[in-house]
Write a protein that binds this DNA or RNA. Sequence first.
DNA 1: TCGTGTCAAGATCTT
DNA 2: AAGATCTTGACACGA
Length: 317
Amino acid sequence: MRIRFGYVAMALGIPEGSPNKTVTASTLNKLADPFDRFSKLTRLVKENLSTQIRVLYYNLAHDIKVFRFTSKLVPLATHSITSGWNYSEEFQHELAEIGTLIKKAGIRVSAHPDHFAILNSKDANVLEATLSDLCYHVNLFDAMGLGIEAKLVLHVGGVYQDKLQALLRFKSEFSKLPSRIKDRIIIENDDRSYNANEVLSLCEDLKVPMVLDVHHHSCCNDGTALTDILPAIFATWGSMIPKIHISSPKGTKNVRAHADYINVDEFIGFLDIAKQYNQDFDVMIEAKQKDLALFSLMKDLRNVQGVTIINQGAIEY
DNA sequence: TCGTGTCAAGATCTT
DNA sequence: AAGATCTTGACACGA
């Protein structure tokens, strides 16, 4: 089976490789002239977008075809201080350039609204903020000219001590989403609330792909072995190539936090499970050292029996 | 320039 | 009811 690797948001292997530059609302508020606020924001977005393009070229130079965007390309995009700002139109040229590059190079991209985006929150304000955040991400994908293959990863969350009700609320809110959002959502098992089994059932119900996070599964599970559910998880992707997330625990005391690099033995453990299903898949590396962790894992994989290195960002196993 | 605090976000645990 | 905690990378600011 063929496995491709990707990393999240920023490149540590090149200078100025972070498209995460931002500003706080309070700093903007201190600028008396609205024009100054506007130009400060505009400068930051332009910088982030040009960094993003540079990072994509860097990825291509290293055969990395899987990438997750930062959610901060447009600082404060969903903050009330920028309400009415048509960033998609203002940066249409730059965003289109990014999209063209992605399509031409065949890069698989996604985004992951952070865990404050809660589709099934009981709080109407939180729900509104969540919808606005999802809309923001989709606005960027649309402006890039990317279709529904550009996915948005969500967690379930919104438990309030009642997981069953929370799941019902999730399904109900999901069904109300506009298709431009709904068609892009994929759901991931998390590290404390919803395990892989529960998310699998939800994904089967909603007919959306499931992202298996192998590390989260080891933090939060009901005793189900991956061997038993992996084929069903892969099946939620239909004809698409499944994607999984991997990371390693930071330490024995803090098992949920992400370590700098990926432990190759843990990953091989997963590969050995996956191998029996002979399904190609993509792997998102969630390690603090980002691209450097990817390179490090690839280096470690060179010494593993059964691994064939296809290029700097893919293996055959 | 360095270190500490703050910012964004929401749920949940503690006081 | 209010505050601390969790999480993340980067800004903001005082020393």
